[in-house]
Every structure is written in structure tokens, then in C-alpha cells.
Design a protein around this nucleic acid. Structure first.
Lengths: 146, 146
DNA sequence: TTTCGTGCAAACCATTTGCAGCAGC
DNA sequence: GCTGCTGCAAATGGTTTGCACGAAA
């Protein structure tokens, strides 16, 4: 595991959190996924089981929350019934256009957004930014035709 | 009702949608709310009942979807268990900082975002932008202390 | 008259929670 | 050993859906 990751874990350990195999292996999985792939809790669970890693859905949800709160991953919501999760890579966040009707999502990156997010967060008292998300909603070409 | 609103309704009517009292009165309610107030479906339902407007929760959810898809309102998600809704005023969308831990939300406006959103949406084939949302997640000052 | 929309109640389903046992540290 | 974490199973709760009736156009 790269140093930056262990460093973060050590910091969490000092704060009283425990680094369990489940938490570690879940994060490991996120690093193995292709960039831009965002999976649901259910999908992540299946992936882990197929890697012979035992983890209950309950723990998975608790771990996802843990990793999100600590900035390791991002929680994405596209207005569907469930959430999606992906690795949080600072300065490399990508963003989404979402069709209000069919749910189609298109990704995009924008260099300017980081600066803007950083500036806005900095204007607040002690707000420690972990993630920022830009979403554009509308009607995609196909749905407009119908 | 201002002309712009009736115009939109007429357009919808032409497209085969029906303008029912429930849809009309729900939208009316959004116009009456203070700017920046975003309520949950449950809260909206209570408000309507207290105004003696009969509407079932099921219809409310269907109407919220209808109004969202057609760009009248915005559906907001702060990572909580339920969604929030507010009027969608083009060029005047506001955005949010959200604490990952306590759920505190702070609003902000940013003039530059509209241009950026418009540009990005324009680069896609026939994507008709209805709304854009910028969210910044992190840890607020109070939660960091704990 | 023809659809489309509504209300009701039941179903859904992702997520959360209580509790007892287990395991980091 | 202390305390936080996990697994299990049950509960939760916002949201969706089937169906029969009512109403917009």
C-alpha cells in the first residue's frame, strides 16, 4: 500500500479508530477499480465476495460511511434509488451531467472547479473540504425526441 | 399567476400533460416559500394540508417528479435519508456546503457557475440543461473540534 | 369519450440499528 | 482488558406502484 494511504490510516488509528481488514480491503478494492467507475453498495459487496473477502452488508455500509467521512471516497447521488461510491482523488474529481428522465450520466472534468471550490470553502470558518461535486441536470437528446 | 408560468403550463398542455389543481397548487406553494427554503416531501405535504389543499403523498411525489423533470423545481440531496425541493430560478441557483458528519448546510451563490454549466452542457449533443448544482463536502468547524 | 392523473393501501428496497460476540491495540 | 467493530436479523422509512375511480381536454 502506498505511503500516503498508510499515513492516513495511522492518523485515524491515533484518533481512536481501528483499522480492520474489512475497512482496509474495501479501500483496496476502490484503488483496483478503473478510474471513473462508481458502484453501488450492492455491487461493491458482490465484488468483495467474489474476491473471497467476507464482509456483511451492514459493515459495508458502515465502512462506506467511515471512508466517506474521512475523505477516502466520494458518495455520489444521481437521483436514483441508491447511491454510488468512487475513490476520491483530490484535484482529479470528475463531475456529471445527469438526464432527469432516463438517468443517463455523462462524466466531465473541469480544472477551474477545484480553485472555485477551494476558495468558497476557505471563506467559511474552519470548513475542511473533503470533496466537491458539480452536477448538471437536464434532458438528454434521446429523451427529448420522445 | 405571472405570464411565464402560464406559458409553461400551456406548453405542457400542448405536449399532452394535464394541468391539475394538485400540480398547480404545489407549484404555487413553491412560489410562496421564502427564497432558499428547501423542504422535504413530508414538509411540503403538511404545508399543503394546512392550506386546506387535498393531495395524497403518492400524488405529491409524482408531482414533484413532474415539476423536476420540467425544470420548475430542483431536487436537492444532502446525503441525508430524504430529498429536499426548492424552486428552480434560472441564473439564480444557489449551492451548498455540506458537513459530512452533522449534515449542516451552508448556502452560497456564485455568478461564474452558470456560465461554466452552460458551456459544459452545450458541449454535449442536444443536452437541454434544467438545473445545475455545486456541492462542497467536508467537516465543519464544530465537528472538527469533537 | 379518451386518456391521463389521483387516492389508497400495499409493496419496495436501500439503508440503519440493537445486540451479542469478536478483535484491534 | 477496554472499547470499538462486525455479523446477523429485524426494523425503518422515504419513495414507488397496482388498481379502480375521477376528471382534464
Amino acid at each position: 500500500m502506498p505511503e500516503s494511504r498508510s499515513e492516513k490510516f495511522n492518523k485515524l488509528r491515533e484518533e481512536g479508530y481501528r483499522i480492520t481488514p474489512q475497512r482496509k480491503q474495501l479501500l483496496e478494492l476502490f484503488y483496483e477499480l478503473p478510474e471513473g467507475e462508481h458502484l453501488s453498495a450492492e455491487e461493491l459487496h458482490k465484488k468483495l465476495l467474489s474476491k473471497k473477502i467476507q464482509i456483511s452488508l451492514a459493515t459495508l455500509y458502515r465502512s462506506l460511511k467511515f471512508l466517506t467521512e474521512n475523505g477516502f471516497i466520494r458518495e455520489l447521488d444521481f437521483g436514483e434509488y441508491h447511491k454510488h461510491y468512487e475513490l476520491n482523488i483530490p484535484h482529479k474529481q470528475h463531475h456529471h451531467l445527469v438526464c432527469n428522465i432516463c438517468g443517463l450520466t455523462i462524466e466531465f472534468e473541469d480544472e477551474n472547479l477545484y480553485e472555485q471550490a477551494f476558495k468558497i470553502a476557505g471563506e467559511q470558518d474552519n470548513f475542511e473540504m473533503k470533496d466537491y461535486q458539480f452536477k448538471i441536470f437536464g434532458i438528454c437528446g434521446k429523451c427529448a425526441e420522445r
